[in-house]
Amino acid sequence: MMSQAAARLPHTKHGEATIMKKLIFNTMILVFCCGVISSAFSEEVICFESRKGASEVTKHDLQPGLPNVKCSPKTGAVLWWGDPFDDTVPLGDMPLLGHISPDKAVVKPRSGKLTILPMCGVACHNGVGPAFIPPTLPKDKKPKPLPMMETLLPDAQNLQHGRGGIWCLDCHHTTQRNKLVDNFGDPVSFDQPQRLCGKCHGDKLRDWRDGIHGKRIGEWASNGKKRWFVCTECHNPHNVQDGARNKGFIQIEPELPPQLPKGMKNANHEHVHGISQPHHGASSQH
């Protein structure tokens, strides 16, 4: 159904920052945060932009009467942006995108949405200490089950990407664990996943660069300012190969169907036609 990442609870910014700073007092602070969150939820409306659990945004007013987003009452998805460039930063260097001026292409940074990312660079995987001299790289490409990682990252238990051909360190940097890795072993920011994904999905990267693949909001002119959506805003890289989806995405909850015309009790007539039930359909049509 929904991605497992969706199970992660959204935190308030305040709570998030506190957890980053003081890992040791995690539990204490969490208890403290519970009170803050429960009181904050009574006023705050949190919707998600493209993927539930990975692109949350808090509803607020840009100006009196102009909300930053309008959300669906049924699914909680963002339906409408008051300002498409709210909270965005320049896309940054991208090969073959020299013709687009930096202020015309903006993205929403992903790092802020990844709740455990700040920990990745400091706690266990900071690349310093006796365990890393010389770097103790795994001997084979079989991920070992690490109970803590599996708790933090439920997706990691069951990687659905590459049909068994790839593993963690094909995408994540060996020593800088708060970075991804490109073709040449250089670290890539989590804000620019396209530089990593394009390694294998070159055709998609080309289409994305030209605006044919993926999503952009803002101005429609080819030289207009646009907010680009990067790969991981829409795709969960850990379960893109999910068997339940049949079109490149995990299944999501749909919005409500249209209103039935006056006098129509239900839409059962739609199930009786030539395609789904050839024999019944034939009798009703002729």
Binding site: R245, P254, L260, E270, I275
Partner: peptide, 20 residues
């Protein structure tokens, strides 16, 4: 699959728990 005279036949009121 569809007899003559039937064009763009489908469901507009579909309401599953999840799509697609």
């Amino acid at each position: 699959y569809s007899p003559a005279g039937v064009v763009l036949e489908g469901e507009y009121f579909y309401e599953p728990e999840a799509v697609p």
